[in-house]
């Protein structure tokens, strides 16, 4: 079988080229403004929809609008961890430099979304539950997720050699993924074991279309924001790591 690059299928060739630092740098440079603009537009639409168009909830009043930021942040906090996990796997198995860069630079963004989810949750909890923080299973496991992110970032910064740091964080990310479901379900179980639910879930009718669309648009906006930010950070990290190479020297001349 002929496996010369010209005979391979289009997608494989694209990914192979993408794995080369210089090609990726240019590729990301082209995409960043488009993704960023798209994220900003969607963000404004969702914000307009969430704050001005949708009606206040019949039980929660205007506080329900916090959901349009809170829920997408919480989704992103998990999405980014899974994204990091796949990149960590790829970087350990196929030793693709770009994947470990992706895994490493995602962590601060993921931590930021996790923090945002917790913070907006606390803002929502005060008027709804009467407390900024309750030891509810979901809140607690989200807080533990924040600590996992913090551990990954701290480990990454503590090791000086970039290659070693990348591999070590990749292993920690994978170990974390094995643990996340266990932590999640054990925390859920802990809560039901220890105390009766102090706060039952609000009697929530399934969400109406009116309220759903800004939520989905905001989710998309956050996704595009993530990829914009990711590509920007990846470019920066790439230049730092490749500063000895010729193309970076030409670029920065």
């Amino acid at each position: 079988m002929n496996t010369s690059p010209s005979r391979q299928n289009v997608f494989l060739r694209f990914f192979r080229r993408l794995a080369s630092p210089k090609y990726f740098y240019d590729f990301a440079g082209v995409w960043i403004p488009w993704l960023g603009t798209l994220a900003l537009l969607l963000f404004l639409i969702a914000l307009y929809g969430g704050l001005l168009i949708t009606p206040p909830d019949y039980q929660q009043g205007d506080s329900v609008r916090i959901m349009y930021v809170h829920v997408p942040s919480a989704w992103m906090s998990l999405f980014i961890y899974v994204f990091m996990f796949f990149n960590a796997i790829i970087s350990l198995i196929w030793r693709i430099k770009l994947s470990d860069i992706m895994a490493n630079v995602s962590a601060p963004i993921g931590a930021a979304f996790t923090f945002l989810a917790l913070f907006t949750g606390a803002m929502w909890g005060k008027p709804m539950w009467g407390a900024y923080w309750v030891w509810d299973a979901r809140l607690t496991s989200e807080a533990i997720l924040l600590f996992l992110y913090a551990g990954i970032i701290a480990l990454n910064f503590a090791i000086e050699d970039r290659q070693t740091a990348a591999k070590a964080t990749a292993i920690l990310i994978i170990v974390g993924v094995v643990n996340i479901p266990i932590i999640h379900y054990s925390v859920e179980w802990w809560n039901t074991l220890h105390q009766g639910p102090t706060i039952t879930k609000l009697d929530k009718p399934s969400i109406t279309m009116d309220m759903l669309w800004p939520l989905l648009v905001m989710t998309l906006a956050f996704k595009f924001y993530f990829f914009t930010n990711l590509l920007m950070r990846a470019r920066l990290e790439l230049i730092r790591r490749e500063k000895q190479s010729q193309w970076v020297n030409e670029l920065l001349r």
Partner: peptide, 14 residues
């Protein structure tokens, strides 16, 4: 401690 303690959560709970 930062790395390991979150992973100990299930043990502590059960």
């Amino acid at each position: 401690a930062l790395i390991v303690l979150p992973l100990y959560v299930p043990i502590l709970i059960f």
